[in-house]
Simulated scan of single mutants.
Amino acid sequence: MSAAALKIESLGIRFGGLLALDEVSIDIAPRSIHAVIGPNGAGKSTLVNLVTGIYAPTTGRVILDGEVLTGLPTHRIAARGVARTFQNTELFTELSARENVLIGLHRHLGYGLLASTLRLPSFYRAERDAARRADELLALVGLEAQGGTAAGDLALGQQRRLELARALAVGPRLLLLDEPAAGLRAAEAEGLSSVLLRLRDELGLTLLLIDHVMRVVMGVSERITVLNYGRKLAEGTPEEVRRNPDVIAAYLGGSPHGA
C-alpha cells in the first residue's frame, strides 16, 4: 500500500439555506495522521462525506495524489484507494469477525463466476489467500484471537477495531475515520491509538481522523484542523491547537492551562 497526499481545496456545500461547510482548505501530508475536530455541527462528518463522494460539493474539489476525486461516484473513489469508517458501527453482527473482513476483500478475489460455480482450483486458491489475508488484518488490529467470534458478541472497542480491519481489506492509501474512539473506555482508547500509529508506521497509510476524544487526537496526530460553524477556525500541531485561545473558547473550554 502506497502513501496518499490529500488536498482539500475550498470545499463547501449548502443544504437549502444552510451553509454546512464554507470553502474549507486542508493539505494532508503523506504517511501522516491529520485530525479534524470541532463542536457538534461544525461540519466534520460533512467533510468526510464530501471527500468520499456521498455528497457533491457546492464549491471546491478534492485531490488525491494529483487526481481529482470530486465528481466521481463513491465506488470509483473507493477503487482509487479511499476507505472510511462511520460513527456508528456498520458490521454484519451475525457473521464472524473473519467473515466481516472477507466481505471487504471481495473485490480482490481472483476468480470469476465460472470458477466459483465449477469450484475450479483457482476458486479454492483465491479463497485460501483471502482467508489468510483476513487473519493478517485481524492480527494487525489486535483481534487475532477473535476471528471466529460473531461480530455482535465483540465488545465495542473490538467492534471498532474490526471496522478498521474491514476498511483495510479494501487496500486503501487514504483512511478516513469518523469518531472511532466514541464510547470507548480509557484502556480501549489507548489500544485504538496504538493501532492507528501502526497503520501509519507499518503500512504507510495516510489517515484523516475525526474524533471528540482528545486523548486520542492529541496523542496520535501530527497536525489538527479545527472547524467551527462550517469554517476553518485554526490549524497546527497538537500543542499549537491546545493553546490557541480561539479553539479553547469554541471547543475545548476553559483556559489554556485547563485545556
Score class of each variant (00 low, 15 high):
47 L>G: 03
189 A>Q: 05
63 I>Y: 02
74 T>L: 12
26 I>E: 00
253 G>P: 07
230 G>A: 07
110 G>W: 05
138 L>R: 10
43 G>C: 07
243 R>K: 14
83 A>V: 06
179 E>P: 01
99 E>A: 13
258 G>P: 00
122 S>M: 10
135 D>S: 13
131 A>R: 15
197 L>I: 10
101 V>L: 06
188 E>L: 09
99 E>Q: 13
25 S>M: 09
50 L>T: 02
62 V>T: 14
126 A>E: 12
186 A>I: 14
103 I>F: 15
34 H>N: 06
51 V>T: 07
194 S>P: 00
16 G>I: 13
97 A>T: 08
250 A>T: 13
78 A>E: 00
66 G>Y: 00
257 H>Y: 11
254 G>H: 10
207 L>G: 05
158 Q>G: 05
72 L>N: 08
175 L>Y: 00
251 Y>T: 08
239 E>I: 09
210 I>A: 09
87 Q>M: 07
152 G>W: 12
46 T>Q: 04
208 L>W: 09
162 L>P: 03
31 R>C: 13
162 L>W: 01
256 P>C: 09
209 L>G: 07
37 I>W: 07
218 M>N: 06
194 S>G: 14
220 V>I: 06
158 Q>N: 14
154 L>F: 06
161 R>I: 04
23 E>K: 12
193 S>D: 08
158 Q>E: 15
136 E>P: 06
103 I>P: 14
71 G>I: 03
250 A>W: 05
78 A>G: 04
29 A>C: 04
235 E>I: 05
119 R>N: 11
157 G>E: 02
233 L>N: 05
53 G>K: 05
81 G>E: 04
185 R>T: 14
164 L>W: 01
119 R>P: 05
5 A>W: 00
26 I>K: 00
76 R>E: 14
48 V>K: 01
234 A>R: 06
163 E>C: 14
11 L>K: 02
76 R>P: 00
145 A>Y: 12
17 G>C: 07
61 R>M: 08
123 F>C: 04
110 G>L: 10
56 A>S: 11
211 D>V: 03
66 G>C: 04
73 P>L: 05
245 P>E: 15
154 L>H: 08
221 S>Y: 03
151 A>I: 14
259 A>L: 03
223 R>P: 01
249 A>C: 10
129 D>I: 13
118 L>Y: 08
18 L>T: 15
35 A>E: 02
64 L>I: 08
60 G>R: 02
137 L>N: 10
230 G>Q: 00
126 A>Y: 12
86 F>W: 12
94 E>R: 13
222 E>D: 12
164 L>C: 04
229 Y>N: 15
198 R>F: 02
238 P>Y: 11
141 V>R: 00
106 H>T: 14
